[in-house]
């Protein structure tokens, strides 16, 4: 069955993409994902801040005890190394080897903080063999002084700078927490985004009530997490030039199908692969094919079948969805007060 898909101009053998996550931290991991049949692999994120902190830390450590004791004016030989510390070099090497090791596109993911860092590293990633760059614009939550328009402006600025510095496609993985998500997507589309990945998951900390501790909130996504991105993909389908990538809440083949029906060009998953191992990708694809066969649909026909029609009133559509949700709930749980 023909599952080939166009994602930002890249030709993928199918619409299932392994998103940034722990499985893509080694060449073997990336190879396993490709072997499992995915259409493309997004590498885990290179964090620019982390890398700058590391370089700073290394320099600080090197000079921490210098010039304090007459017999030892220093403790390390003068070794010329990159000011990025070890993180960037390791990442670039991984991109290079992983891109070589697989025959599907490898997308590098960049999580940056400064404009200069974004631009420099994006072009280095492209040079190292990444087929595309995914910008993970993840502003640290909790800062109450930054205005919404500042955040939006920052996204556009970063995207434009990177877009100008590389020739490979550039996707933006965005957060759902804009006051007008759709408008932001359109703005990014206008600013040159080749793809929009919906959504980044905001890692919220948890509280351990026994130990009275705040614990870091890294959790795998669950199926319900797919509803929000699916809604927005359905809305955006046909309204932006950029490819649409769905991310979050993919566990079974039916989740893949739902996203495609809503209008996603590709469907990304990490959590299910972490839970069940890379070969699970094969099962998702088999399920997709089985569904298409059962419904006697091609992928092209199925994609966007249940998207919001281009001429529909988006508010009305959303309202309709809300009303039907209430109706459904009523029939399931009894009358609501």
């Amino acid at each position: 069955m023909d599952l080939t898909t166009n994602y930002m101009g890249l030709r993928l053998r199918n619409p299932l993409v392994a998103s940034a996550g722990p499985l893509s931290q080694t060449v073997n991991g990336v190879r396993a994902l490709a072997d499992a049949g995915v259409g493309a692999v997004v590498m885990y994120s290179l964090f620019e801040e982390q890398m700058r902190r590391e370089a700073e830390k290394m320099a600080e450590l090197e000079e921490a005890h210098e010039d304090s004791f007459p017999e030892a004016l220093s403790y390390f030989p003068n070794v010329p190394y990159s000011s990025d510390g070890t993180a960037v070099t390791s990442y670039l090497r991984l991109v290079e080897s992983a891109a070589d090791a697989i025959d599907v596109p490898l997308i590098a993911s960049l999580n940056g903080a400064t404009l200069g860092g974004w631009v420099k590293n994006a072009s280095r990633l492209a040079d190292a063999g990444a087929s595309a760059i995914e910008l993970n614009i993840y502003l640290v939550p909790g800062d109450v002084t930054v205005t919404g328009s500042e955040v939006e402006h920052r996204h556009i600025e970063i995207l434009q700078a990177v877009r100008e510095s590389v020739s490979v496609p550039v996707a933006v993985k965005m957060s759902p927490y804009f006051s007008s998500v759709g408008n932001m997507c359109v703005a990014l589309d206008h600013a040159g985004a080749d793809g929009l990945v919906l959504f980044n998951r905001f890692l919220q900390p948890d509280i351990d009530i026994d130990r009275l501790e705040v614990t870091p909130g890294v959790t795998l996504s669950s199926r319900d997490d797919a509803r929000l991105p699916r809604t927005w993909i359905a809305v955006l389908r046909g309204k932006v030039k950029a490819s649409l990538a769905a991310s979050s809440g993919v566990e079974t083949p039916s989740d893949v199908v739902k996203y495609l029906l809503a209008g996603a060009d590709i469907v990304m998953t990490t959590s299910s692969l972490v839970r069940h191992g890379a070969p699970h990708a094969g099962k998702l694809l088999e399920g997709l094919e089985a569904w298409l066969t059962r419904k006697e649909l091609t992928l092209e026909r199925a994609r966007g079948m249940l998207a919001v029609p281009r001429d529909a009133d988006p508010a009305g559509y959303a309202r309709t969805g809300y009303v039907s949700a209430l109706e459904k709930a009523k029939s399931t749980y009894g009358a609501l007060r």
Partner: peptide, 13 residues
Amino acid sequence: ELRYKVLRAANPE
């Protein structure tokens, strides 16, 4: 440890 990291940053291979 910097004694190992320095080499990784300078010559990862």
